[in-house]
Simulated scan of single mutants.
Amino acid sequence: MVDESVEEAKAALRIKAHAARASLDHQERAEAAAAAAKHFFDGIALDPSHVVAAYWRIRDELDCQPILVRLMDSNQTVVLPVVLGDEEPLDLRVWEQGASLYEAGFGTLAPSDLAPRAEPDIVIMPLLGFDARGTRLGYGGGYYDRTLAKLKKKPLLVGLAYAVQELDDIPREAHDVPLDAIVTEAGVRHFGDNA
């Protein structure tokens, strides 16, 4: 059952977080993406055998490309998400070195339908907002919630955002899986037990 008051609160927070993100200029965005990539590699334990799910930036999200380039250059296995339908989990396709990316809806790019699939050990997640408890505020479509629910193992969940996207408190519902860490241009914060 949907709690209307929680949904209204989240809708208001989405507007606030999106406005904060949209207020950044092109130079601030580029500098933040470079700094966040450095913090990601300095602060997230990454094993060469790990499969890393990342994303292709849409609209004014923090650009994941500096992280993607370094992962691909180091031959890390990378998967990119594809939206298959409104009530479906994301299809996580391996992006193989040298393989082309194709339009995958919502302005994203992804490997072809023929690409292999893999379950991630680490998921880098875009978001609209986050709070000090590791609660992630997404766009409200539930794609990541459905995807995480179908995985055989729980991956390390790493939010990627601008520091201005931090909110005081985001209501957390039973289906909301908290982040293990958040990476911004200001650094990495680990949430431990996600209390």
Rank of each mutant, 00 (worst) to 15 (best):
P120L: 10
R93C: 06
K154H: 12
V123A: 15
L148C: 11
P120D: 05
A118W: 04
L127W: 01
Y144M: 12
Q97K: 15
V82L: 02
R172A: 12
G105Q: 05
K153G: 09
A115C: 09
D113M: 12
G142P: 09
Q165Y: 00
P171R: 07
R117T: 13
G98K: 10
D168K: 10
G129L: 08
F130A: 00
G140F: 05
A115H: 08
S100H: 03
P89C: 11
P120V: 07
L156G: 00
G141P: 10
Y102L: 06
A115F: 11
V83L: 00
D168F: 01
L151S: 06
R136A: 03
K150P: 02
M125E: 04
L92K: 09
R93W: 03
A118M: 10
E88S: 14
G85R: 08
P171K: 08
P155R: 04
F130R: 03
G85K: 10
P120K: 07
E166G: 01
G142E: 10
Y143L: 11
L167Q: 14
G159I: 04
W95N: 07
S100K: 10
L92S: 07
Q97H: 13
G140N: 13
R172I: 09
L151Q: 07
L114V: 10
E103N: 15
R133C: 10
V94Y: 04
V82K: 11
I170D: 06
L114H: 13
G159W: 03
I170A: 09
L151K: 05
L109T: 02
Y139D: 04
K154S: 14
L92M: 14
A115E: 05
E166I: 03
A115Q: 11
V94E: 06
T135G: 05
A163R: 04
P89L: 11
D145S: 09
R133A: 13
D168R: 05
L101A: 13
V164I: 10
L101V: 11
L109Q: 12
S112A: 15
F106N: 15
G140D: 14
V94C: 06
A149D: 13
L109I: 01
L148K: 12
G142N: 09
